[in-house]
Amino acid sequence: MNDIAISFQNVTKIYPLYHHITGGIKSLLFHPVKAVKSLKSSHFLALKDISFEVKKGEALGIMGKNGAGKSTILGLIAGVLKPTKGKIIVNGRISPLLELGAGFHPELTGRENIILKGVLIGLTRNEILKKMEDIIDFSELGDFIDQPVRIYSSGMLARLGFSIIANLNPEILLIDEILAVGDETFQKKCFNRMLSFKKNGITILFVSHSIENIRFICDRVIWLENQNIKAIDITETIVSKYIGNM
């Protein structure tokens, strides 16, 4: 059996900046040459030639400044983004990206959103309904579960998001800062759940600005800087360097 969960091989990600053409028909009509040229020439390099591997059951942290490319890495693993160059191999079922801004449909209730997410990650309705009570219990949202998600606070959205993925048998968890908005007790609950996931061989990718949380969960850490991996090593080594750099 292959014990590698995720492998990045010389991955480069360039975002094209589309705002020129989304700027509209006007620029296309009046400056066609310029519009098309700008379309080709404006790019943003987010990740430059990155390689790393994550073993099954490992918890890997990702640190770095705002805009360093952390979320981009998770997006690439989740398959919602495609690398511009290089190769990404993922072994195992991926949970939906858990990041701020939820990923829910605002008009649907919490319960309906659970079903929607469930079918989107490949479960049948029956399978989801069987876990429904567990999810709702874990989230502690009570009666709010039948309210439209647009009235939820950001902590409540985080609760719902984490509860869903925590109860749908993920193999690879992608967590992007979401726990920062949960209250203390819920954070604790999530970390305990994550520790038990680790024991069961589930791979975790954890993006956070909280050194304390990274220390608690992660075995190894990637430090991103200037579109590149500045260092990758066991947690203590990176964390002490990172603190020294601040």
């Binding site: 398959g79 919602v80 939906p96 939820a102 929607l116 997410k117």
Partner: peptide, 11 residues
Amino acid sequence: GNAQIIKKINF
């Protein structure tokens, strides 16, 4: 209108 789920899940 479905941006939120398109950005988070590959389906």
